[in-house]
Write a protein that binds this DNA or RNA. Sequence first.
DNA 1: ATATTTGTTGAATCGTGATTCAAATACTTA
DNA 2: TAAGTATTTGAATCACGATTCAACAAATAT
Lengths: 234, 234
Amino acid sequence: MTQRKSRADRRVELIDAARRAMIQHGAEGVHLNQIAEEAGLTSGAVLYHYPDLRDLLIEAHHAGMERFYEQRVKKISGIADPAQKLITTIRSGLPEGPDDAGVRLLCELGGAAGRNRVYGTLLTTLYDRQVAMYQTILEIGAAQGVFKLAGDSEQIARNLVALEDAYGYRIIARHHSIGPDEAVGLILDFARMSTGHPLKETPAARPKTTRTPRPRNGGPARGATTTPPPKDAS
Amino acid sequence: MTQRKSRADRRVELIDAARRAMIQHGAEGVHLNQIAEEAGLTSGAVLYHYPDLRDLLIEAHHAGMERFYEQRVKKISGIADPAQKLITTIRSGLPEGPDDAGVRLLCELGGAAGRNRVYGTLLTTLYDRQVAMYQTILEIGAAQGVFKLAGDSEQIARNLVALEDAYGYRIIARHHSIGPDEAVGLILDFARMSTGHPLKETPAARPKTTRTPRPRNGGPARGATTTPPPKDAS
DNA sequence: ATATTTGTTGAATCGTGATTCAAATACTTA
DNA sequence: TAAGTATTTGAATCACGATTCAACAAATAT
């Protein structure tokens, strides 16, 4: 039998397993068994902890967002210069590549949010929090005289988050000419106009593969696309 | 027996039925029977025309995009003034509300694009076409001396489309304070900075409920949310 | 009018995933 | 160590969607 765990521990594990399963099979396409397998358990065990699957999925999304947001906050926590802070924040809002787990999960939610109020609220809340985050950075920069805002800080912040979101989708969809670097460039173009600051990227604000340590459970399940590669693109 | 149709006619109908079904149940969550019902046929008939469901779904997405894009082009076809053209284009890229069918379908695709190459390509292609559309408007405006571009036209165009996309998602997710009007306002703020033009909205560029004639088959299937309204958030 | 082709149904079958639950196993406590 | 409790399994059951196909009806051709 699989190692027995305490209720709390197992729930945390399940939430993470659900997160991984959803990324592989879609937020709405996941199956109980896939989550169970991801957790190294049987479906019965999963149901024992979450009699209603939807609760688990929502918690998983919630956790994913929390993690995403916390990572961003953490990344800028040590930076004093508003300009560097802004640049770093922009980068941290984008996926590192098409396989970035955190952003993949968020993208999954986009469509579902239109049909499911809870998901809509979850996503909306995250958006608002990110706007607030940017707004703070902008305001502080303006107060210090580093930024000369070309408009309302909320308006600028909203557009910054919007750009992040949209380029996140492009990167996830594997746009041929828009990767993380290009997206940062595009968003910075807007940020410069809005802050009147040159916003030069320093080596410190660069990539630095320091985020989710990749797939985690190796990549054996890879290669097999969820939806079998459709024969032809119409 | 349901009215018999020619192969071509039926396929067109099925594509539209699939489009509607996907909006209601998710791009990946639709079931054959739901599409059949939407078309007023049995599952067998659907399979007769599309032995592989995925082909139908892809065609439906393709058609949805084409329709979306054509509508935009049509809306600006008669406008000569670059500024009005730009404003109208911006508005036409946004959903009219949380239930806007065209945009709903596009949003559905966002998540799937990360897992399905065909969808990714479809979405990417649409993005590029929209960028080109904006770029043309910008370039013409600049050539006429109406716009003074604050940067590369492609860069500006990319950001414009990105903003549209992102606010589309917000509106679909029912953000409490961002509706079509607010989104237009936010995007226009960026457009003004980029073009150096005041871009005043004239009554001509306003809403004017002239798009998809609403649900089509009445709203009987409504009310019943696909995913039954999850008990509690978090 | 008859034959042929094409489109559609409806029932039967198959497969798969969710759900249930008694039994087995690991912990905890006494 | 024994009793009690919590967790997990595995098999059985249930529900439902996809798939197949013979029969049938509508269109078209002869």
